[in-house]
C-alpha cells in the first residue's frame, strides 16, 4: 500500500456505556477509495464522525496524515480540518444561504481567492455536480438529490486531500448516482483525493471501491476487508455473502 493517510488503531467507540464497535484497526492509503459497509445501524456513520473528529473515541486513536485526531488540541485539529472535506447524510446545507453562498463560504474563508474568481470557482464546482445555474437558489427550493449534490460541491470547495462522504448516492436517481461515481473516480485519478465513503449501494461499491471494510453489529468488529469483487466471490462469511448478493437473512 502507498503512504498511509488515515490510521485507526484500537478504536473503541460508543455512547455512555453502550459500545458500538470495539478495537477497530485499519489503515487507509493515500489516493485510495475506501468504502465502509455494514448493515443499517451498525455504526458506519458513527465511525465516520469519529474519523472527522466530531465524536471522541472511548479508547484508541485516529491519525490523519500523521497527525493525531484530538478535537481538544485546537492547532492540530485545525490543520487536520484544512485537509479534509465532509459531506453529511442529509446534505447539511445552511438553509439561510443560497447554494452559491454555501459553496463560496469555505472558499472565501480559507483561500486567497476574491471577487469574481470566487464566483467562477463556485460555478465550476456546481458544474461538476450538475447544478450550474442554481447558484441563487436556497436549499429549500431543491429536491433531496440536488441538496446532496450541492453538499458534495461544498465538500469539494477546497479540493481537500481526503473527502468523507456519508451515503452520497442515497436518494439519487441512477443517472445522478452514476455521475457521482464518475466524479469520485475522476477526482481520485486527477487530484489523488482519498475517499472514505459510507454507502449501501452495491453498484456504486463495485464501481468505485478500491477496498472495503465491513462492520458487523453483533460482533462489534470488522468481519471482512478487501476488494469488493473478491469478497463477493470468495468470502466464506455468511453475512458478507448475503450483503453482496442481496439475500434476506431468512433465505438459506
Amino acid at each position: 500500500m502507498s503512504e498511509t493517510v488515515i490510521s485507526v488503531r484500537g478504536l473503541t467507540m460508543g455512547f455512555g456505556d453502550h459500545v458500538v464497535m470495539k478495537d477497530l484497526d485499519f489503515d487507509i492509503g493515500k489516493g485510495e477509495i475506501f468504502v465502509i459497509l455494514g448493515g443499517s445501524g451498525c455504526g458506519k456513520s458513527t465511525l465516520l464522525k469519529h474519523m472527522v473528529g466530531l465524536y471522541k473515541p472511548m479508547s484508541g486513536t485516529i491519525a490523519i496524515a500523521g497527525m493525531l485526531m484530538d478535537p481538544d488540541d485546537g492547532e492540530t485539529f485545525r490543520r487536520i480540518l484544512a485537509r479534509i472535506g465532509v459531506m453529511y447524510q442529509g446534505g447539511a446545507l445552511f438553509s439561510s444561504m443560497t447554494l452559491g453562498e454555501n459553496v463560496a463560504l469555505p472558499i472565501t474563508e480559507y483561500s486567497g481567492l476574491r471577487g469574481r474568481a470566487v464566483d467562477d470557482l463556485v460555478r465550476l464546482k456546481l458544474r461538476q455536480v450538475g447544478l450550474e445555474g442554481f447558484e441563487n437558489h436556497l436549499p429549500e427550493e431543491l429536491s433531496g438529490g440536488m441538496k446532496k449534490r450541492a453538499a458534495i460541491a461544498r465538500a469539494l470547495a477546497l479540493n481537500p486531500e481526503i473527502l468523507f462522504l456519508d451515503e452520497p448516492s442515497a436518494g439519487l436517481d441512477p443517472i445522478s448516482s452514476a455521475e457521482l461515481d464518475a466524479l469520485i473516480l475522476r477526482l481520485n485519478r486527477t487530484l489523488g483525493t482519498t475517499f472514505v465513503v459510507v454507502t449501501h449501494e452495491l453498484s456504486s461499491i463495485f464501481t468505485i471501491a478500491g477496498r472495503v471494510v465491513m462492520l458487523d453489529k453483533t460482533t462489534k468488529s470488522i468481519i471482512a476487508e478487501g476488494d469488493p469483487h473478491e469478497l463477493r466471490d470468495r468470502s466464506t462469511h455468511p453475512f458478507v455473502r448475503r450483503f453482496f448478493n442481496r439475500q434476506p437473512e431468512m433465505e438459506t
Binding site: S111, L113, A117, D120, L121, L124, K125, Q128, N159, T190, L191
Partner: peptide
C-alpha cells in the same frame, strides 16, 4: 492543474 487552476484559463 485542478479546477482552481482552471480559473486562470477562465480569466
Amino acid at each position: 492543474m485542478d479546477d482552481c487552476g482552471a480559473l486562470i484559463v477562465m480569466e
